[in-house]
Design a protein around this nucleic acid. Sequence first.
DNA 1: CTGTTAGCGCGTTCAT
DNA 2: ATGAACGCGCTAACAG
Lengths: 330, 330
Amino acid sequence: MHGDDRPAVTIEHVARAAGVSRATVSRVLTGSGPSSADAGQRVRAAAERLGYTADPVARALVHGRGTRLVVAVTSASPTELVDCPYVSRVVGSTAQRCASEGLGVALQWLPLDAPEPTLDALARDRSVAGVVLVNTTRRVLDAVPPRLVGRVASIGAGSPTVPLVDVDTSAAAAALTAHLLSTGRRRIAMLAGPPWLPCAERPVTAHRAAVRAAGLPERVLAGDFTAESGRRGAVEALRRWPDTDALYAICDETALGAIQALRALGRRVPEDVAVTGFDDLPLAAFSGPALTTATHPVEQIAARAAGSLLDRDRTTVTLFPSELVVRQSA
Amino acid sequence: MHGDDRPAVTIEHVARAAGVSRATVSRVLTGSGPSSADAGQRVRAAAERLGYTADPVARALVHGRGTRLVVAVTSASPTELVDCPYVSRVVGSTAQRCASEGLGVALQWLPLDAPEPTLDALARDRSVAGVVLVNTTRRVLDAVPPRLVGRVASIGAGSPTVPLVDVDTSAAAAALTAHLLSTGRRRIAMLAGPPWLPCAERPVTAHRAAVRAAGLPERVLAGDFTAESGRRGAVEALRRWPDTDALYAICDETALGAIQALRALGRRVPEDVAVTGFDDLPLAAFSGPALTTATHPVEQIAARAAGSLLDRDRTTVTLFPSELVVRQSA
DNA sequence: CTGTTAGCGCGTTCAT
DNA sequence: ATGAACGCGCTAACAG
């Protein structure tokens, strides 16, 4: 009735069945030590026949490795985690990458205004094999406990002790801005992300540089990645700079919100105002008009971040390329 | 240099600091046995001061509980897991629900044409605390090993031994169909899911019943949840039934694909043909035209499925309500 | 090349 | 109410 009828075949059973000691079974199966071809054969056969699987828990205990990789997301409130597609994608890919190692993935909220206690708790928790930081702020980077160094990677922003894995947002911003410029846009406003988010700075810097190089005015409005932020941003941009002929949004959601507001204001997209996004979400091709954007290989990035932790890779910065996707909105 | 400077405060340290035995510390902290108020006080203080956290790994080992909850997804190929937003949402919510219990989440692929070996392996793996089945087929349900019973739940389709958690797709299908009917549509074609997927049957049945009750013809085309399937379905529907005035799609992606094909064919949406979806994806409001659909609380469902495993809840069927969202496409 | 011994950190009997 | 001893399943160190 408990579903607890576990005949749970252990290493002991395999050892007995193969007529060897547990140590030999362990050596054979992990390949961690010498073993005769004969014993190896018998052990492997017995293990196969009994359906033996080494218990990752016991293994983790002796190795002190931990059994889960934590995806730690910094945000103002925990509810943002629940329905943020970006976070879901990261967690999903991480889980897939960790599956082969017998590791699970946990999702942890890091309070924007007080990440330190949680970070310390993670560092102390011996079941934590590693931590992948998402939406990383400088405060979080500064608060990474020494014990965590070597077991932590960050998506979005790194530091001397925290390796960074991300998409090359600078190149993407340059490409997107160049596209707008090459199609004749001259009064571009950027609907940016939160100023306090390091990973949101790179595209702003790149965009500003591109616009400045073209001898055009730099127009940047802060936002927060949401569609609502795009709506407000579009209205505000047109109020401050009525001659705006292009909106470069920090992400697809913001771009879609901007398009919605633009239309409500009676502006045609892209005729009057061109709009670009970033992420190339699955549904970006179906918006009205279809969104011009750039790809964001979140799955690859997350898998790489997890992989670098598991492999103890020391690479400081890993940037994945982004590809321009030209559709109708710009 | 290894980041392995773990002073790792264990129960032993707390015991010494509090001047008691490890057993007492354990009893106090887990509340699993008697303890004097005095000792309790000292232990708690010491634990707090040293920043002690019981190692979930060791704890899991002694309890034999496992350390991860596996989300097992049935599909034709493993690549489908990587970029399926639905799976990501399930994994993300599950991870969040499991975090408080110190459990991680793993993502496991179940080959559509041979799920048995993998299922058996999961049953044997002692680190598996439970399994949440996604996209469940009958074959998978039949192959659930006895050892897994009581530690498994399914999203989409259940069985006498496997509890079901899902959205009330029947009610949603009825509501969506009723909406089409009430707005004057009389020649409705359904763009359905794969016939072999149990969870895709419920909406079909409900839709057929609603249409039949209205004395209208039942028109159903098989598909597979993708946008491409929607494009093909729309073309095929118009070829077979040129008088079609509404398309009821199994999900938002399929609906968007259908709209795209419809427009390419010169049909106006919703004037000539109304289109409805299902899921209410975050971007459904931004399509052209904005999609009429119904909500799908995936996050709640996943959290509930995980929760029922952790709480050893025995409820056989749990259905979450879906809400109609009327926009422009129908 | 192999078996024996000794823990990993914790919960849980047993005595007391 | 408390402490000593044992065991969860496994790997690492040491003999042989």
